[in-house]
Design a protein around this nucleic acid. Structure first.
Length: 584
RNA sequence: GCUCCCAUAGCUUAACGGAUAAAGCAACGGUCUUCUAAACCGUAGAGUGUUGGUUCGAUUCCAACUGGGAGCGCCA
């Protein structure tokens, strides 16, 4: 089932092939930015006119003539310098809404070429409780996984946890000195983090401790039995505790292959890279350098200093024999290629690591994985009140657990006020869905590239473009069905007569475009925007058009309209990892 | 020093190279005997940091500049 845009795209493409060979590049049809001009527009006449040095309005007229779109659109209007504006016919809109009433996918087409896509997100450190800094990767990655899965791709959600880095040297050293098995069991994060902080502080001033910690790490990486056993305990308790928060967040992974999983492969990876001439020894370490194939300005292995380009290598083995995360990342790329046959890997990681990923991706290309699409889907930083990234050491971080609890708490207070008649059980259940939804939505609804200052009010807002607003539209529709005593919409034809009916019906058909756009750009905020618009149009329809008191044919049509709207809202929220409730 | 990111209404943001730049919040004024007012309607509020360029057309692309942030060899 095509979206209206896709339908018009196909029709325009057909006419363009005939009229203007060789055809200018697609896409040709986009939504009108201003609905007063129509529903969709094509500027292909303008593009072609430049190419052919012809009058764009004449070409637009020719194109209008050649188009076969009577069943979809009114006669297209030539406007401005040579646009063709399309206005969808109400009868077409009504038919299409009715078709979506019978379609589980609500008119969202399946990808023409499904891919195996690894999505790498969340990636917490097992020695540190998840805090607000992990929110974006987790929520964004989960939404992207759901969206790509719905589009028919084979999604492999992989939590690349930090269970192996330098920090573990310090933790092992500290745990041996003053660790407590009981504390570890009851509060793994609290205990390990306290040890880590303490040793880290000591190591700053005491070189002997710094060295000792490094030795512990090397021992661990070389398979020392005692260190290995301790580490396995850290891992087990930490994973159990992580599972609790993921459960609460409603986030799931197909795999949790952390850094340690690749440990055994690291020497071999380094050896291969050296043997193939990609990496070489440098100052006791082993590193990948520029191969000189890129222009210096674009080469991630070069940086300019005082007009001279100097090397900016990617270190894959430290001079003490330990490995860096770049090594693990390279081993991970190979594994994902060989084991998952991934055609695409999406890294949902903080934007501060852009340089690292540019180097990593280029190294992977030179290593022979150039046919795998590697995407760094980066996001801005959550800042503290001082406009600096929220950091653990400053003691200013907000635990993810606390954030979720606060969200539920605030939601509960509002529910208590608005629906005092609800039982406590019900109230708590609603608070969970509404509070968590608001929290996730706040992060998803804005452009991921922007930094923002952490703020309870912003993150837990319940008005405006928020999850509760969208959830509420769903609730109102369900209330109508409840009152009517209906489980589902009747078999009925759709009549779009009132302006608010037309606007709502029209919007419903764009669901597929919005999901596709969110996927193409890795930006779920497009989907949020769509759902907010849809909910707004529903609320307007709800004000203007009584459903249950309307005469039979109109009533049934409005029930269908409501049903498709409800299912679209529910599906859309689901793709964002947000649930709905039947009442709120 | 170099590289990357950001700059739009009082605040937070949107705008898939297009037409008179769009929302939410906050402010002000209306609407519940009628499917849940977590709603709806209305008023006021910016010409997109600056200067140029490309284009029929620029918030969007390019260059320079200003301001803010981040990154740049053994942390991840």
């Amino acid at each position: 089932m095509n979206t209206p845009r896709q339908e018009l795209e196909a029709r325009v493409a057909q006419a363009v092939q005939k009229l203007f060979p060789p055809a200018p590049p697609a896409p040709y049809v986009r939504p009108c930015p201003d609905p007063r001009h129509g529903d969709f527009q094509t500027n292909v006449a303008l593009v072609q006119a430049k190419e052919a040095k012809a009058n764009p309005r004449d070409l637009a007229a020719k194109l209008a003539e050649a188009l076969e779109i009577d069943d979809v659109s009114e006669k297209p209007e030539i406007a401005g310098p040579g646009f063709l504006n399309f206005r969808l016919k109400p009868i077409y809109l009504a038919e299409q809404v009715a078709r979506r009433g019978k379609d589980d996918r609500l008119g969202v087409p399946v990808a023409a070429k499904p891919e195996a896509i690894v999505i790498d997100y969340s990636s917490p450190n097992i020695a540190k409780e998840m805090h607000v800094g992990h929110l974006r990767s987790t929520v964004l990655g989960d939404a992207l996984a759901r969206i790509h899965c719905f589009l028919g791709h084979k999604v492999i959600a992989d939590n690349h946890i930090g269970d192996w880095g330098t920090g573990f040297g310090m933790i092992l050293f500290g745990f041996k000195r003053e660790g407590d098995a009981e504390k570890l069991r009851h509060d793994p994060f609290g205990h390990l983090e306290a040890i880590y902080r303490k040793i880290q502080a000591e190591a700053k001033t005491d070189e002997a401790i710094n060295e000792a910690a490094k030795r512990e790490l090397v021992l661990l990486q070389q398979g020392d039995a005692e260190n290995r056993k301790l580490w396995e305990q850290f891992l087990k308790y930490s994973l159990d505790a992580l599972e609790v928060i993921y459960q609460k967040l409603g986030v799931q992974f197909d795999y949790t292959l952390g850094e340690s999983f690749y440990n055994n492969a690291l020497p071999e990876v380094v050896a291969e890279l050296v043997q193939r001439g990609l990496a070489r020894e440098s100052e006791g370490a082993i590193a990948i350098f520029s191969d000189g194939t890129l222009p210096p300005k674009e080469d991630p292995f070069l940086v300019s200093e005082k007009g001279e380009f100097r090397n900016n290598p990617l270190l894959i083995r430290k001079s003490d024999g330990g490995y860096n995360y770049a090594t693990t990342d390279l081993a991970t790329i190979r594994y994902r290629h060989e084991h998952f046959h991934a055609q695409r890997v999406i890294y949902v990681v903080d934007g501060r690591q852009q340089m690292h990923f540019r180097q990593l991706f280029d190294a992977a290309r030179r290593w022979g994985y150039g046919d795998m699409k590697l995407e760094h889907v980066w996001f801005g930083t959550i800042l503290g009140p001082d406009k600096k990234p929220i950091k653990t050491r400053e003691g200013g971080d907000v635990k993810l657990k606390a954030l979720v609890a606060e969200a539920e708490d605030r939601a509960e207070k509002i529910i208590e006020e608005k629906r005092p008649e609800l039982s406590e059980t019900e109230r708590l259940r609603l608070a969970r869905v509404v509070g968590l939804g608001a929290l996730k939505y706040a992060d998803l609804a804005q452009n991921r590239n922007l930094d923002y200052v952490f703020n309870w009010e912003k993150l837990l807002a319940f008005d405006g473009n928020t999850a509760p607003y969208v959830q509420n539209a769903y609730v109102r529709i369900r209330a109508i069905f409840r009152k009517a005593g209906l489980e589902e919409a009747p078999e009925a034809s759709v009549i779009l007569a009132e302006p608010t009916e037309l606007a709502l019906g029209r919007k419903l058909l764009d669901f597929g475009d919005s999901v596709q756009l969110a996927a193409d750009e890795y930006r779920p905020h497009y989907l949020c925007l769509y759902l907010f618009d849809l909910a707004t149009l529903f609320h307007k329809f709800y004000e203007a058009c009584p459903v249950l008191t309307a005469e039979a044919a109109v009533r049934d049509s409005r029930l269908v309209l409501g049903d498709v709207t409800a299912r679209t809202l529910r599906q859309g929220l689901h793709l964002l990892g947000i649930d709905v409730v039947e009442q709120m």
